[in-house]
Structure formats: structure tokens, C-alpha cells
């Protein structure tokens, strides 16, 4: 499944880029993610917990980050296995940061391939809705980190732990709100 999104962060681009280059800090802003290992060459390992409808999957995996400061672009490619539920995930994310007035525009191009129970029974139709929610938390976290008064305070900032049910609910509510708007604006 391909997911493309663009979002703005109210911080200047160099600061955002610096955060993107600091994997442990960045990982704290990804809901459900935990970094267990990282190397200077961009290889890293960790866990991502996701609740996809009735399926909760904890993907153990490895990823490689390749980035280019000159163009402020990068690619993350990785794969993970949920050993308890037999689900597998493959992920490629290309990101690009652009300076805009008053902040930074981030463009994300992701390709997610799920297999196993998560693919069959996870409500992956809702994945795109959930992405919006995840990005919302990510942006809030990045902004909070970058506006923290001290590095120690910044390090304390985490994305809200991933709440499958709340994510699911909000991802179900979003289409309902859209439907509601459509129905009532039509008249």
C-alpha cells in the first residue's frame, strides 16, 4: 500500500533536519516505535507496535536510514516480523524537507507491504486514516521537542503511546465526520 502525505512543522528547517538525523530522538516521536539499537552507518533495530482493528502486532525488525543533508532527503527501508501473530511488514519511506515561510514542509512517500494475519484481518483499509493520526502526533511531538527550553526537557518529550483503540476510533470517526459534512453541506 502506498501512502503519500505532506505536513508542516512550525519550526525552522535546519532544526527539523537535525532532529531527523538524530535517530533515537526521532524514534521517540513515532507512536508505538521503540529503538533498541542504532549504528553510525544508518542501520538500526527496534520494535513497532500497531493495532490494526482486531489485530495487535508487535513488529521486531531492522531498518536502514540513508540521508543526504545537502538535499534534505532520506530513505528508510526496513522489515519486521510479528512473531506471535505471524504477521510480516516491509516498509520503505522516502522523506524530503522543504523550507517554507514560518517553518518546514515534510513530504513522506511510504510503501507498506503487510502479510499474514495483519494483512488479512487488520483493517488495512483504515491504515490511511490511521496515518493521519500518527502524523498528527508526530508533528506535535517534533514541535514540542524543538521548542523545549533545554535538551533534557526535549528528551522527555514522547509521542503519546500508541493507543490502538483510540487510533481506531479516531480513524473511524474521521470518515463519519466527512460523511456528515457531505450530507449536510449538500442541502
Amino acid at each position: 500500500m502506498k501512502i503519500t502525505d505532506t505536513f508542516d512543522v512550525d519550526c525552522e528547517v535546519d532544526a527539523v533536519w537535525a532532529l531527523f538525523e538524530d535517530l533515537p530522538e526521532l524514534a521517540q516521536c513515532l507512536p508505538g516505535a521503540e529503538l533498541t539499537e542504532h549504528h553510525d552507518d544508518g542501520r538500526c533495530a527496534g520494535q513497532v507496535e500497531a493495532k490494526l482493528g482486531p489485530i495487535t502486532a508487535t513488529f521486531d525488525g531492522e531498518a536502514t536510514v540513508v540521508s543526504d543533508t545537502a538535499t534534505r532527503t532520506g530513505t528508510v527501508s526496513g522489515k519486521g516480523v510479528d512473531r506471535r501473530g505471524g504477521s510480516r511488514a516491509q516498509l520503505t519511506v522516502a522523506y524530503k524537507l522543504l523550507e517554507i515561510e514560518g517553518g518546514t514542509r515534510v513530504t513522506v512517500d511510504a510503501d507498506v507491504v503487510l502479510s499474514g494475519a495483519a494483512a488479512q484481518f487488520g483493517r488495512i483499509g483504515l491504515l490511511k486514516e490511521m496515518t493521519g493520526k500518527i502524523i498528527g502526533e508526530f508533528v506535535q511531538c517534533v514541535e514540542a521537542k524543538l521548542s523545549a527550553p533545554t535538551p533534557e526537557a526535549a528528551a522527555e518529550v514522547h509521542a503519546g503511546d500508541v493507543k490502538g483503540i483510540s487510533l481506531l476510533l479516531s480513524s473511524m470517526v474521521a470518515p463519519l465526520v466527512r460523511l456528515f459534512n457531505r450530507v449536510f453541506r449538500r442541502n
Partner: peptide
């Protein structure tokens, strides 16, 4: 498209 059966329950 990847061959996952989406209607398996």
C-alpha cells in the same frame, strides 16, 4: 494485490 485474502473470516 499481494495475494492476501481479505475475506477470510
Amino acid at each position: 494485490a499481494d495475494g492476501n485474502l481479505l475475506s477470510g473470516s
